[in-house]
């Protein structure tokens, strides 16, 4: 059993390193140009925020339309930590996550009494309140004019080098987020969270403190969304409350639903897909949204549960199948560590 665990860890670690090296090499040699490099980085940020939303919506079963609100709290608080308090980048990003987690805890309480549509409206209102507060807190946030001059990941002046460094930062955080969400879901507290989605009454009578785990899930989700927001701030170097309006939240819901509610790999696929499709459709100008909506309807018609449903693509299983075929069958896995990218 221990051997299995070590094998799993090594497979996943090497898979994430290999993916990174391949992407970085493609960027370095110019096969992926800077424009696409930027897009990949942005996709990474979308993946982080979408995974955080999937934790509440896909795994806990609580529809949230305020994820952009969480994101903006993370973005502004980390930007302020860097610009006003001159804290280092990593510290600021983590502060962004922690400040957002506090708000997640607060917004978690109303969710105990609200369900479904009512909760969605409440979280939507929350997102809008945050946006309006950001517009009016001009001294710190720059108000509607926006906040300029947020320090970047790297500022060497060499565009190629900068974009690779940007990409690496975001990539590391994407991997950390995937590991956090995956390990949480495949543990006993994670099963408690999923049981709330399945049947709240049954979960309660199985000895699970439903209120505690709902709030826990909201807090955790807010933390991750805050990290995503902080990366977003550093990535653009500029913040404006409009970036976090209601439709931004909807975008994340679209990614989660497209990928499959309750699927980590689905969210990753949909996150990358969404970012690219959004860019390709840019030449349609305003019709972009119409076409996007149509595409969404078509996908939902043919895959009503999203691309992956609640399934996962598991790298460990994949590798097992093709490299260690002789070891298959005999060993049952104690932990299902599921796929990374």
């Amino acid at each position: 059993m221990k051997k299995n665990r070590i094998f799993n860890t090594i497979t996943l670690l090497s898979a994430s390193v290999i993916v990174f090296i391949v992407l970085a090499a493609l960027l370095f040699t110019g096969i992926i140009d800077e424009y696409n490099g930027q897009l990949l980085t942005l996709a990474g940020i979308y993946i982080i925020v979408s995974l955080s939303l999937n934790l509440i919506t896909g795994f806990t079963g609580q529809l949230s339309l305020g994820q952009a609100g969480f994101m903006s709290i993370g973005a502004y608080s980390s930007a302020i930590a860097m610009m006003n308090f001159h804290l280092p980048l990593v510290v600021s990003i983590i502060i962004g996550g922690l400040v957002t987690a506090v708000f997640g805890l607060l917004i978690g309480f109303p969710t105990l009494r609200l369900r479904g549509d009512y909760l969605a409206i409440t979280t939507l209102g929350f997102g809008e309140i945050i946006r309006v507060i950001m517009v009016n807190l001009e001294t710190y946030t720059g108000g509607a004019a926006g906040l300029k001059g947020i320090p970047s990941f790297s500022d060497t002046g060499d565009f190629l080098k900068d974009s690779i460094i940007k990409f690496s930062w975001v990539y590391v955080f994407v991997i950390i987020t995937i590991v956090i969400v995956n390990n949480l879901i495949n543990s006993s507290p994670g099963r408690a969270i999923v049981s709330i989605r399945e049947d709240e009454i049954a979960a309660n009578s199985m000895g699970i403190n439903v209120s505690y785990y709902k709030i826990f899930s909201f807090t955790m989700s807010a933390f991750l969304a805050g990290i995503g927001g902080a990366l977003y701030a550093v990535y653009f170097g500029y913040l404006n409350p409009v970036m976090f309006w209601f439709l931004t939240s909807v975008n994340f819901v679209v990614i989660v639903v497209l990928g499959g509610m309750g699927s980590i790999t689905g969210t990753i696929l949909a996150g990358v897909g969404f970012t690219y499709i959004q860019e390709w459709l840019r030449f349609f100008k305003d019709f972009r949204l119409v076409i996007f909506g149509l595409a969404l309807i078509i996908v939902m018609l043919f895959w009503p549960r999203g691309l992956m449903g609640t399934n996962e693509f598991s790298i460990v299983k994949f590798v097992r199948k093709y490299i260690r075929k002789e070891h298959e069958g005999g060993s049952s896995k104690p932990s299902k560590i599921k796929g990374v990218k």
């Binding site: 543990s187 006993s188 507290p189 099963r191 408690a192 049981s195 199985m206 699970i208 403190n209």
Partner: peptide, 10 residues
């Protein structure tokens, strides 16, 4: 396994 949750120590 979910029913065992409240007895889980980690």
């Amino acid at each position: 396994r979910i029913a065992f949750h409240f007895n889980v120590k980690y």
